[in-house]
Amino acid sequence: MGYPKDLLASRSIIEHGKYALIAPEGLVNNVIPGFENCIISILGSPKLGASFVDYVVTMKIGGRNSDGFGGQVDVETFVYVIEGEIKASAGDQEFVLNESGYLYCPPGTKMYLENLKDTESKLFLYKQKYRPLKGRKPWVVSNHANKIEYQIYDGMHNVHLKDLLPTDIDFDMNFHILSFDPAASHPFIETHVQEHGAYLLTGEGMYNLDNKWVPVKKGDYIFMGPYVHQAAYAIGRENLTYVYSKDCNRDVEL
């Protein structure tokens, strides 16, 4: 990066346990054992107040995770390709994933990742502890989001949603893509027990976080904790679109 070109400033906002906006300009590289020729930044994590861990990973030429990711008996993982092309493996299954491709690995299944491009590939990576349900068990899921049709969101024809994982109760979480046409918004300011980790894929917007309106744009990461007010509207000339996680299909433990 070299010497600063202006006064030191940041758009990032951190409210531990509540919410965070993390702009890409301030990210630093975290060394994670097993990842080779990769630049990794840890985004959401328990140290921030999240029950999961989110990463943004830039795989350089020859980048890979040779030791595997996840694989513990109580940890599930997910990867989404922001740009580039990778080989993703789950046990004895292999998938070639281009932009919008993704892979979910259930507990006990290691995920292996390898860059297939002669340029960089960029990934949104996730892990969390699985909350078991008697008689239920999730399975490996892989697809490309651009092969899934958008559904109209909450009756509004200018907001659209994709479910990336099955809505079956075998799964205790899901990943979605939400897309707002220019000037579109949520129907109301949400307040709920679920938490989210979101990576902005396209566009610009204003996001309500704990009743504070914050400008956001492509490349930003947002953590939203339980019961934090949240809503968005799109501004500019292109859709505001983001991929995000949501915990679901389980009761609250006492």
Rank of each mutant, 00 (worst) to 15 (best):
D6Q: 15
S12Q: 08
K18W: 09
I32V: 14
E36T: 14
K47E: 12
G49W: 03
S51E: 14
Y55H: 09
V57I: 15
T58A: 04
M59H: 08
K60T: 13
S66I: 11
F69C: 06
F69Y: 14
D74I: 09
V75M: 15
F78E: 00
E83M: 05
E83P: 00
E83Q: 08
E85C: 11
A90Q: 01
G91S: 10
D92A: 14
Q93L: 14
V96H: 12
G101L: 09
G101N: 10
L103S: 03
Y104N: 04
P106Y: 02
L113W: 02
E120K: 10
S121I: 02
K122I: 11
Y130P: 09
Y130D: 12
Y130T: 14
R136H: 13
K137L: 10
P138N: 07
V140G: 03
V140A: 03
V141L: 08
N146T: 07
Q151E: 14
H157D: 13
H157K: 11
N158W: 00
N158R: 00
H160A: 13
K162H: 03
L164S: 03
I169G: 06
I169R: 12
D172G: 09
D172M: 09
S179D: 02
F180A: 02
D181A: 11
A183C: 15
H192R: 04
H196V: 07
L200P: 02
T202A: 10
Y207N: 08
Y207R: 08
N211A: 05
K212F: 04
V214H: 00
G219C: 03
L240W: 08
V243L: 06
V243D: 02
D247S: 15
